[in-house]
Amino acid sequence: MSEVTATPAVVRVEGVTKTFPRGYVTALENIELEIAPREFVSLIGPSGCGKSTLLRVIGDLIEPTAGTVRVNGKSARQARRDGDYGIVFQEAVLYDWRSIAKNIALPLEMLGWSRQRRRERVAEMLDLVELTSFADHHPWQLSGGMQQRVAIARALSFEPSLLLMDEPFGALDEMTRERLNLELLSIWEQTGNSVVFVTHSISEAVFLSSRVVVMSPRPGRIAGVVEIDLPHPRTVDTREASRFFELVTEVRELLRMRGEHLLPEEEAVLE
């Protein structure tokens, strides 16, 4: 699953630097990253390593100070305009005044789809995230985990080739998290897009990804990459395999090693 084919990269980040003038923070320095089709890549690192910033640069929500980003061969701005990616934040950001079905239909409305087409696609999406019976409910009637599933359905509703996720399960409890990890993988198998996934959790990163990119802070850099060669499909048993623990340890060591210039108290931030 993690074979990088000769097809053009979905995302190509070259020499991207981002400094924030206020406080003179170098959030990202000379980032080089390529993401192939159907790849699931996690970005992990301590607070301030720039992982969320990098995600936003890819999504053209933040402009880099230097360097280029190409998504599907276009500039990031053009990709955003063309709807080439869907995004899921840590908060579901659903509209209280719309039903679940209408929330999922939002990007489709913006793209000018006909009512018939919207209805069909929303039904497909609800089926994908297994929330069909909740179509007419409202966001506040759903649990946090369910709201995030709606957010994922909404992000995928227009079939983007890229899915950007910024700690989407960070606000949920561990059991819901693990369950949603499995669901996300099954959805990903069905839709086949690339995913860039930002997370704080080492086990989550290893479980989900084909590649884990470890980042270090001040300035934000890529400290190293760990290839995840766990077999697909991944199940609950995968978490108990010895290879899983080896990979988790590898990632953890990478985080600590690059964090050697961290102050001792900041070590506690890492898992």
Binding site: R80, G86, I87, V93, W97, R98, L106, M110, L111
Partner: peptide, 27 residues
Amino acid sequence: ADPRALELMRTYAASRWAVLWKLRVPA
């Protein structure tokens, strides 16, 4: 309007008109 919702609108490359009628007015 929730700033996160506004950011989401940016990802849809929404026009000001769309943001007004789909987000700001209902909110």
